[in-house]
Amino acid sequence: MNMLQKFSGALVVIVGVVSCFTASAQETPPEAYIDPVDRQVAESGEGIAGRPYPCAVEEMEDGDAVISFLPIDECVKMLPAEEWHGLWRNDFEGSQFCARPAEMCHFDSVEDRVWLETRLMQGEVGALYEVRFIGRRTMFKGSYGHMGASAHLIVVDRPISMKMVEAPPPPMSKAEADAEWDRCERAGNCISIKELKRLHPALDFSGTTANR
């Protein structure tokens, strides 16, 4: 399957399951890449004609420049498949795996985070699962997963078992949302309801704090 992420101007269209690279992908060492051209781009820190980033191809479609990214396991070197057992935290824009004997799994629980590429597993957002599967891990430490925030990535090739061990948290009440808004206002890092609506037009924000 050819799974691509396409960028055209300010519009982003996602096709299939995506392995996303950003500018921080250059933190991944050049020797991690399969293609010699990608190694060259990573070493120089500069793209070449038609290859702006490692594992990316730039083409013209209807007059627009479109950049397509390869799936991660077609892009970087992977270790042989093996059986994995541990905890999977399925967050919004997050997919963290903590191998046994870990007893907890969240963003700050480990120094070297592992992103789990779960094309073959589905779970509730916000839940924690005990999982067992056959998968391949990236050979070299680098910048993987959402925003390049994980040191490694594992591709699930064959799920074996999956059991929810922690249910998703309940939605915030209006009082809790107001308290969180007050906290982030004091910290100076709030995102306005107007901006949230722009980013997530399908979500209902009618029960939250007024549009500040």
Rank of each mutant, 00 (worst) to 15 (best):
V156C: 02
Q96W: 05
E58V: 07
E130C: 03
L11T: 14
I154K: 00
L70M: 15
F69Y: 11
E59Q: 14
I154A: 01
L120P: 08
G94E: 09
R113I: 07
G94I: 06
T138L: 03
Q96P: 01
E111W: 08
Y144M: 05
A187I: 08
A151C: 10
R51V: 10
K77C: 15
G16V: 08
A151I: 02
N2D: 15
E176W: 00
L87M: 11
M162Y: 05
I72R: 02
E195K: 09
G123W: 03
D64E: 13
S173Q: 02
Q26C: 15
V110M: 13
C75N: 05
R136P: 02
K77L: 15
P101W: 00
V15E: 15
Y53E: 08
M104Q: 15
T138I: 04
E27G: 08
H200S: 10
V165Q: 01
M172H: 09
L4F: 12
H146R: 04
D62K: 06
K6W: 14
L4H: 09
D64S: 06
P36M: 06
E27V: 09
K141Y: 05
E176V: 07
V13Y: 06
K197F: 08
H106I: 13
A187G: 05
A49D: 11
S161T: 10
V156H: 00
K77T: 13
E82S: 11
I48T: 03
F7M: 13
A179T: 09
W84Q: 00
F133K: 00
E58M: 03
I72L: 07
P52L: 09
A210S: 09
G16C: 09
G47Y: 02
S150D: 11
R51F: 07
